[in-house]
Design a protein around this nucleic acid. Sequence first.
DNA 1: TATTGTTATACTCTATAACTATA
DNA 2: TATAGTTATAGAGTATAACAATA
Lengths: 162, 162
Amino acid sequence: MPHRSRTTASIVRVPELEYDVLDVLIGYALRRAQVALYGAFDRATRGMDITPPRFTALVIVGANAGISQSTLGTVLGIARSGAMMLVDWMVERGMVERRNCPRDRRAWGLHLTVRGERFVEKMKASVLAEDRRQASLLSSAERRTLLGLLDKISVTKKERRA
Amino acid sequence: MPHRSRTTASIVRVPELEYDVLDVLIGYALRRAQVALYGAFDRATRGMDITPPRFTALVIVGANAGISQSTLGTVLGIARSGAMMLVDWMVERGMVERRNCPRDRRAWGLHLTVRGERFVEKMKASVLAEDRRQASLLSSAERRTLLGLLDKISVTKKERRA
DNA sequence: TATTGTTATACTCTATAACTATA
DNA sequence: TATAGTTATAGAGTATAACAATA
């Protein structure tokens, strides 16, 4: 399940066309909405060289100092090898440090550097503002409703069984 | 903006972790929901060698006989070259035919074959059923509300200016 | 045995740029 | 000039499999 690239794509609704079953599929409606929100994300992070997985990784490390690479991968829904490359990227840019983990000598404990903390704050503020701007097409009540409904359907089959 | 691969990924919510700003971002909630719906899509199309772009392309061609490759690309939000490879794939499997376009001799008119029509019907029924099953975590009123809210935020900046 | 991090490799989807035929 | 289709190339993101160190 690859993540989206930097390029701002757009799904244009062509009025003359029939969309058939696509008009009633929650999955397709989600994709259209996500493309629009990715546009907002792109504007918010322009010039920062940030992608959605990088954003998520930085926020998670910032809020969970000492987290391991494997756990980070689980949160992002990617394999260990991918999490590692993501961490490499953050380390190369001086935003994250790998420190020894006292409890498990196999694992690294990930921590934001001071530079990383500054960057994460700036990035979060910018993304949050653009997300709100895009979502300003909704009232705040509608926004809460949307978050609630999305949360309800975000359950995987595995979790439902558990 | 690459599409998702076949592998059913999963974003696991780790209860011990702080999610910080991710909990209030519409964009992140959309991504989680989309991952769950992709799981449903995967189950629905297991063994069919179908991906979301292939599904969308087949449905659109089926509902819009004679459509050109470029228009198809616009609907999917991908470049012409990508639309072409998608059409190659459908043609190789005997689902779609490229016919000469009477109005514009540069373009192809795309049409489903009889085999393609049968396949599309089967595929649509299966995907719709799984989408409903996943969305059955919602009442039908909630489902309509969700579709409406998603539609509201699916407007790109370009469209808003227009 | 199972798990963490690592490395190497391969695959999918998409973009870009250049070419041709037609508009 | 601009657009439709084509071709070739490159890049991002992810998966898988295997290995060493540790649990």
